[in-house]
Design a protein around this nucleic acid. Structure first.
Length: 647
RNA sequence: GCCAACGUAGCUCAGCCGGUAGAGCAGCUGAUUCGUAAUCAGCAGGUCCAGGGUUCGAGUCCCUGCGUUGGCUCCA
């Protein structure tokens, strides 16, 4: 065992240091004056608490309050300060634990006789500010299980004793203190509370102990913290940007959809929203033509027996709307797959018929608990760009490959980032033969590899009936959304006793692939609206062109212009209101109409229209025929850019 | 479902300690005929979420329900 460690520093230098040295001891040497700002050590991408011995050789650096990555540690330490403040203000409160992911927020759960009020939060914040001003040093101590037990027993921290008991045998147990406060914690923590430069408590909520609703409910407090006030303000600016893009707000402002209390969590798409919705469906139908899908239309209501056969009755009943007529139990469909199995069974299938790709935009209803519904992203009534592919086992590979083409084509069209791909494999509770699973996982992995796409493995996260590939994209402000999914299913074909006549004349069971590209159209609508901040691409815009007469005198001329665009298949309206041009421009911009056409004496005389593009402004008068041609092309090809200069 | 906050005109919001409801925008009417992000004036618009209670009196206080929003998807 080497006596000394080799640390590669960011400047390339390799520093030899004695075993057992801590980042804090090394800081003056590495950072000089800035040592007082040190927050945490980083050894080969892993945190090393300032007060903990550096465990081994490797690339090493010390983060200071000026490194944005140090924010996680600052928030984690602010979490302890929060718990300290609560204990100071409300003696007898039992503390539970904080949050694991500190990339954005911190939180702490408490056993407290009543919920915290907004007034409590204000007081706690003041107390936290005092603790930060006291600039108390954090200390780290390795303790034995027995010492930890006695410590928290003496402090009456019952929940901590439960947490302690759950720490696996053999793991190092540490406690962190600042001032009078002590917490069972892995760390890492900042040097002193004063390094928490700016913080804010955000909200309170109830939270079940260990996230399990059979446990007692604790009181949770959320907050966030940064090294500087500027970073805290930037955080609130990001929240504000997300609010500005909120699809619920845009949906109301742009008159796209609404909700009504008498149909909770079920959207009403208004005329403009229905245009957008139908354009999304039209896109998929067009692609289905090219990718060899056949669309089907299936019932809404089924005898419960169908769901018994499919297994939904057993596994999914709490999410289904049930009803009864003539003493017979029925359910509104939550998924399309069983219908498609029934269609499969209508005829004797041969291997020559496969792959059979059945697409269905059928409306689905799923009961979502009242507390979990949210705008368009979590609804009870929706439809999907759903399809099921029935194929031979050896067709899985080529089918997946085609699906990748389809997914990438669609996401590219909406200008999302390249998707991140997750491969989820066999979970513990799985059905079907182990050999088929292995084969399916190998096939999926083979497809990913042969396409050269990188992916992340999610071991054990597959569906109970088969492994799956998920597609996650980032939107314009960096938020991640899971859209597409490809799921292999060896279960349902068996349950429905689906067969085909194989080449050798024997009867075999086909494989089923469940897949969606947009996922729920409703959810995609919401995600896309936020991604574009309401500025829909030309081909999707409910109103593509608005013609603005300079005054009433040119109204009939403007109507004639609009008719030309309508005849070319474009969605064009005239703003015929008795308003000044400036007001019509403003309203057109606020309605996010991509193309505004100004028509006055000059234009009518010359056969031109003055083109004003959203986010580009006035292009001046352009020949009417030219504008018709360019916009017609832009729509037909679903172009992102409407007006290339060099055309 | 559970915890908390919220629910006032189509929208955004004000309404103090309980004393009988207000603004801006939108709408309607009229005047103005206008050249690239708001013309002026007038009018109309309310089951203050619903139901119950306290009170001489409730938008305001209490209870119940509904809806919306944020959480409850842990892991010292």
């Amino acid at each position: 065992m080497a006596e000394r460690l080799q640390l590669q520093l960011p400047n390339g230098e390799v520093r030899e240091v004695p075993q057992g040295i801590t980042p804090l001891e090394l800081a003056p040497e590495l950072l000089g004056e800035a040592a007082k700002d040190a927050v945490v050590g980083l050894l080969d991408g892993q945190w090393v608490d300032l007060r903990a011995p550096i465990p081994r050789s490797g690339p090493f650096r010390i983060l200071t309050v000026r490194d944005p990555e140090a924010g996680d540690v600052i928030r984690h330490s602010a979490e302890h300060v929060l718990a300290d403040a609560v204990e100071r203000l409300f003696p007898g409160t039992i503390i539970d634990a904080g949050r694991q992911d500190h990339s954005e927020k911190f939180q702490y759960d408490f056993r407290h006789p009543r919920p915290f009020t907004p007034e409590d939060l204000a007081r706690i914040e003041e107390e936290m500010a005092r603790i930060v001003a006291e600039d108390l040093p954090f200390t780290r101590q390795v303790v034995t299980r027995q010492q930890a037990w006695e410590l928290f027993k003496a402090r009456g921290e019952e929940l901590k004793l439960i947490r302690l008991a759950e720490i696996p045998e053999g793991e190092e147990i540490t406690v962190f203190r600042h001032g009078e406060f002590v917490d069972l914690c892995r760390g890492p923590h900042v040097q002193r509370t004063g390094q928490i430069g700016a913080f804010k408590l955000l909200e309170t909520s109830g939270a079940y102990f260990k996230g399990d609703e059979r446990n007692e409910m604790l009181q949770r407090i959320y907050g966030t913290a940064f090294a500087t006030r500027e970073e805290l303000e930037a955080y609130f600016a990001r929240l504000e940007e997300a609010r500005r893009r909120d699809h619920r707000r845009l949906g109301r402002e742009l008159d796209l959809f609404s909700f009504h209390p008498l149909a909770p969590a079920s959207p009403f798409f208004h005329p403009k929203g229905a245009i957008v919705y139908n354009e999304l469906v039209a896109l998929m139908r067009e692609l289905y033509q090219r990718y060899g899908y056949q669309e089907v239309i299936t019932p809404q209501l089924f005898d419960a027996e169908l769901w018994q056969v499919s297994g939904h009755w057993e596994a999914y009943r709490e999410n289904m709307f049930l009803t009864e007529v003539e003493g017979r139990a029925f359910s509104i469909k939550p998924m399309n797959c069983p219908s498609h199995c029934l269609i499969y069974k209508v005829a004797a299938r041969s291997y020559r018929d496969l792959p059979l790709r059945l697409a269905d935009f059928g409306r689905l209803h799923r009961f979502e608990r009242s507390g979990v519904v949210q705008g368009l992203t979590r609804v009870r009534s929706f439809s999907q760009d759903d399809a099921h592919i029935f194929c031979l086992p050896e067709q899985i590979g080529p089918e997946i490959d085609r699906l990748f083409d389809l997914m990438f084509e669609v996401y590219g069209l909406f200008r999302f980032t390249e998707p991140t791909i997750y491969l989820s494999t066999k979970p513990e509770k799985a059905i079907g033969d182990a050999e088929l699973w292995a084969q399916a996982e190998a096939t999926l992995e083979g497809c990913l590899k042969s396409r050269g796409v990188s992916y992340t493995l999610n071991p054990g996260e597959g569906a109970f009936y088969g492994p799956k590939i998920d597609f996650v994209v980032q939107d314009a402000i960096g938020r991640e959304w899971q859209l597409g999914t490809i799921q292999l299913d060896f279960n349902l074909p068996h349950r429905f006793a689906l067969t085909y006549a194989a080449e050798d004349g024997t009867e075999k069971t086909p494989v089923m692939i469940h897949r969606a590209v947009l996922g729920s159209i409703e959810r995609f609508f919401g995600v896309m609206l936020e991604h574009f901040a309401g500025d829909l691409p030309f081909w999707l815009a409910p109103e593509q062109v608005r013609v603005l007469p300079v005054s009433d005198k040119f109204l009939s001329g403007a109507q004639e212009v609009a008719r030309r665009f309508q005849a070319a298949g474009l969605r064009a309206q005239v703003d015929g209101r008795n308003e000044k041009l400036g007001a019509k421009i403003r309203d057109g911009e606020l309605a996010k109409v991509p193309v505004l056409l100004v028509v006055g004496a000059k234009e009518l005389e010359q056969g031109t229209v003055s083109v004003r593009l959203r986010h580009r402004g006035d292009l001046g008068p352009q020949p009417l025929e030219e504008v018709l041609r360019r916009l017609g092309q832009a729509k037909a090809h679903r172009r992102a850019v409407l007006w290339e200069e060099d055309e």
